[in-house]
Design a protein around this nucleic acid. Structure first.
Lengths: 67, 67
DNA sequence: TCTTTTTGTCAATTATATTTTACTTTTTGT
DNA sequence: ACAAAAAGTAAAATATAATTGACAAAAAGA
């Protein structure tokens, strides 16, 4: 899986650290780090939580072509 | 979690059974049934696969308000 | 009605997302 | 350069997504 740079950028735009965002959605900092790095695929529920905090859509942050 | 009726409708529109869709995205029939029933949250990767097969977006099929 | 297909459901197992603790590396600010 | 904060990483444990096999209920077609 590829690094999620759109997520990283959206987070930076809100001036949040990985730890900030993790706390806001109720997961650990390591989980956010792994998602941003593209190390594993989160559940749709967690994706929705991230989108709500960052004010983005699922398609904005979590769509990928190809796969 | 709520039943995913949008998914059910999109599948019907393509004239696919749960088993058809499950095979197309590489999971079991029971998994598709559980997702449609809202029994557990699939991974984002599986959601993307479903969207590709049904020709819909993540926001179309997997966004939920509130939660 | 009869038959077949589709859907619903359950228990037990496997695969993997997520946690916890802890440490290293990189970045940021002074 | 120095200190502090943020990000990267890893192993072991836990929670839960997904599988497998099997059977019952409901829907569809003849």
């Amino acid at each position: 899986m590829a690094k999620n740079l759109k997520l990283k950028a959206a987070r930076a735009e809100k001036d949040m650290t990985q730890a900030d965002l993790a706390a806001a959605v109720g997961v650990t900092r390591q989980t956010m780090n792994a998602i941003e790095k593209g190390e594993y695929n989160p559940t749709i529920k967690l994706c929705r939580a991230i989108c709500r905090v960052l004010g983005r859509t699922l398609d904005d942050l979590f769509w990928e072509d190809g796969e």
